[in-house]
């Protein structure tokens, strides 16, 4: 297989997020594994920001990579954090400069046996959602082509991630809409049950359920469900 064919295959692999069992962690593991292969790195990891902007280490090809990324978060220094801040790749930072910019990170990097580290942002237009770290045993330099390829891999992964988030968000809203609808119907039916059982009007029926739910710290919809299933009688609503 030529390198172009391999690259094309990786792109298809990363673009295929429209599967039933999409798993974010599996997806990011694929990104890190393929990036290590294609960019001649020795390890890789991904840091992602959650909805509140808190950073998490979500995927790593090795324990050392994970350790280094956790260290970056703990010490608040390292190529990945600079990359997140600037939204630009942080690559080919030499030993001396690295030691100066990220003293604790650089020491730890050497301790676990790596000579260089690079970071590429996961971004879509203005939004940076995370960054990918690449760790190399040799003090290697990424060429312009390498950086461009790494960024392309990161870009397609970001699209996949954001798409999955959007789909999940829509699904949640849709389910919430359904639940709201179901509960509305249930509450009205329960009012009718109480009206017929106790010869009361609609407002009295609702008040009966609301006051019972407040006294006993239940949600009205749950009281309504029990009224409809006849497990809660008018007498019980009045007494307790």
């Amino acid at each position: 297989m030529t390198s172009e064919q391999r690259l094309a295959r990786v792109f298809v692999e990363l673009a295929d997020t429209l599967v039933d069992e999409f798993d974010t962690l599996d997806f990011l593991s694929t990104l890190t594994e393929r990036s290590v292969e294609l960019l001649n790195a020795d390890a890789a990891g991904v840091i992602l920001a959650d909805a509140r902007g808190v950073l998490h280490v979500v995927a790593s090809t090795s324990d050392q990579a994970q350790l280094l990324e956790l260290l970056e978060l703990q010490n608040d220094e390292g190529p990945c954090l600079d990359c997140l801040q600037s939204a630009r790749p942080v690559v080919n930072v030499g030993g001396g400069e690295s030691q100066e910019r990220w003293p604790r990170f650089s020491t730890a990097l050497a301790e676990v046996g790596f000579a260089s580290a690079h970071a590429i942002p996961l971004r879509l237009r203005d939004s940076v959602v995370g960054a990918m770290n690449l760790f190399c045993a040799a003090d290697s330099q990424l060429s312009e082509d390498d950086v461009a390829m790494g960024q392309a891999l990161a870009d397609i992964a970001t699209i996949g991630l954001l798409q999955e988030r959007a789909v999940r968000q829509s699904g949640l809203i849709a389910e919430q809409l359904q639940t709201a609808l179901d509960n509305r119907v249930l509450i009205e039916q329960a009012k009718g049950v109480l009206m017929a059982s106790a010869e009361i009007d609609v407002d009295q029926a609702f008040r009966l359920m609301r006051e019972y739910s407040r006294r006993n710290n239940y949600a009205v919809k749950d009281v309504a469900r029990q009224v409809v299933s006849r497990t809660l009688s008018v007498e019980h609503l009045r007494r307790s």
């Binding site: 009012k191 009718g192 017929a196 409809v228």
Partner: peptide
């Protein structure tokens, strides 16, 4: 829906 509960 109220009438449904009532009639039930």
């Amino acid at each position: 829906h109220q009438a449904t509960g009532f009639l039930s």
